[in-house]
Design a protein around this nucleic acid. Structure first.
Lengths: 213, 213, 213, 213
DNA sequence: AATGAATGAGGATTCATTCAT
DNA sequence: AATGAATGAATCCTCATTCAT
């Protein structure tokens, strides 16, 4: 999480010490999130990374290739973290709570990634878009399984499709990119706590009848 | 909801009967959602609308102006509908449930609008982006007030910021554009019901302690 | 033939009176022949034609499209002229002689076209290259038929494949681009006469045994 | 002639046993003929030769240098063969026939070289282009002298410029690259026989009056 | 003798917008 | 109200060549 902050502050020329691909990836993440993929010219990109166009095309076959690299990095990170939490010990509800809170925390700590992820999917080639969707689905399914397990065990209410709950939750998370500000009233951890609470609250079994009966 | 369906099926040349501006707005909505704002060329746009470039520039001062028109139409519709529900009679919880369910329904019935709304905000000029955000905030606030009222009345739990709940809810709704498919297992109404339930469940007061204590 | 000369001398900005596509075609023919297709930049091209890049892309979808237009014009002209001669009256040998002499004359009068035709075929797309080859083959076949007819009638020797004679002849013609100079010792008409003579001489029946028995 | 076949079939990495310069020359000949000089990138070239860029630039100072090397090899071979035939014993007509037939045979056996020779001349520097032209002219002159000698001796008709006959003949030969296919109906030797026959037939003295009187 | 990362100039093409008609 | 030819700036990408190792 410190990384994300550092990346932002270290913006210009980027520690010339870092390897070229990393410099480019870092600059791309910042610029794509800031101005959008299409509004970012390759020239701006390489200038921000402190490299030349030739160097960029030596490592990435196209601007889209660089975008895809951003997706790959995000997906890898998300998957890695979720697995850590899913495979931890402790009661299911606790593990789900922790995983949910962590997703939020990771998201606000890598807000640029999240903004790009959902906004620029359509800029990828058909094929790569498919690859991203597939990997993302796997990620969702991992989460869904935790919920389904809880439903089977009776820990969670079963009268709502687990799939829908997952989409509901990740929708909220994805939306963080639209309103979360690092200098806002709520910290990422605080929001993570609330969101995890809301998720578990909505999964509590035997809900008292709501307004609509 | 019939609109959305019609719009899609009437895609080509678009009922040559409709006035030119409507034809353009309709084609723009479809194409911007399908390929993105920047991937849609003015030529494609006017071809799809069955008009010429000159005609388009007669009614819209720029491509961005057309995009802004999409935003204006969406905002107007959202505001109108929310007000209908907010000002209805009946218990607060019921009204909130109905409003929430309706937002979902309206969203899936105008999925193109929703996709564009969150994906292309950064393509608007600074000024117009500000205007959209302001109007959108007003919309959120209207929703938030319902929740706050419920919290004050003790109908809803008060240990979670109303603002956060609103963002949480609308995040889920916005995300529908990423996964909802008209031919999927769940209808828009069904999802609306579930989402409204989840919202109210998460606002139920006196939640039993969750996993994390 | 006057055209070709005019075209060359009228080179610069090209009578701004001519329509844009013609101006471009004319400039392209001159430059592609002079420096080669790839050595000619679109910028040079439009500068020479006295138009802007945008104007060029309004009429031609690509630089290759412009090249293809050159091929189309050449093929149309060749076909038209050959037909005139093939369908004329008079003895076959005379018609063949006249047609052959005319091909040479037309070739040296449009030397740029000829140079481009055989040098840049590989710059066309697979598909267009195929189209050119097909049309060119038709042209050859028209010529070949005259020879075959003569062979059947006994006017020409039949112990050499008509196809081979055609290829042999057109090879010589094509090669004119490599050595003919308008200011050389021989005029186009003179060369045409000789080439036609050589063609008919090589088709004379009952050849005395040559050196190799 | 075995060379040509071998070269083609041994295409990939090229017998890693051959010295680097030969491997490059061989790959260049194949690729330049196949896709053209400009369409062949240095990267493709070195990949096809199974060497690295650095290695290539160690032996050749530029891509054009490699092209020039192709020309040098062709010219050397042509000159060598022609001399063998010109200096042989026997009647002039026979020697000319044999030389002409051999040119054809050599040409179809090294078709790639021929294709490159006439298509890419304009890619050489002014200076090198001049050198190639000069050497080529010498070659033509050698051929022309045989014809002139025959004309002086009365073996060949003298009413057609020897120069023109040479250009006519080599035009046909050069054109082989446009239509000869190793799997076609006629073998290289057969075509060589015919072409030599046509040449001698067109040089036969006292031609019966042709169609045009 | 050989590597391959890096350079940077150059090129084709796209496209929103204008404007004379 | 509408046309569509023309503009020209902006953009992505290619590629021969260099050079430190």
């Amino acid at each position: 999480m410190a990384d994300a902050t550092d990346r932002r502050s270290a913006s210009p020329p980027d520690p010339a010490s870092l390897p070229v691909p990393e410099r480019l990836l870092s600059a791309a993440t910042r610029l794509f999130a800031q101005h959008g993929f299409e509004r970012t010219s390759v020239q701006e990109l390489v200038d921000a990374a402190g490299v030349t166009k030739g160097a960029m095309y030596h490592y990435f076959s196209s601007k889209e290739d660089l975008l895809f690299a951003v997706y790959q990095r995000v997906l890898a990170m998300q998957t890695r973290r979720l697995e850590e939490f899913a495979e931890a010990d402790g009661p299911l509800a606790e593990r789900l709570h922790a995983a949910a809170a962590d997703v939020v925390l990771t998201t606000v700590d890598n807000l640029d990634d999240t903004v790009i992820f959902f906004r620029s999917l359509h800029m990828l080639s058909e094929e790569r878009r498919g690859a991203v969707r597939k990997e993302r689905r796997r990620y969702h399914e991992r989460f869904r399984e935790m919920i389904r397990t809880g439903q089977r065990q009776g820990v969670f209410r079963a009268d709502v499709p687990a799939d829908l709950v997952v989409n509901h939750f990740f929708g909220s998370v994805h939306h963080l990119g639209m309103w979360y500000r690092p200098d806002g009233a709520l910290s990422g951890a605080a929001i993570g706590g609330y969101y995890a609470d809301l998720l578990l609250a909505s999964l509590r079994p035997d809900p008292a009848p709501t307004g609509t009966g």
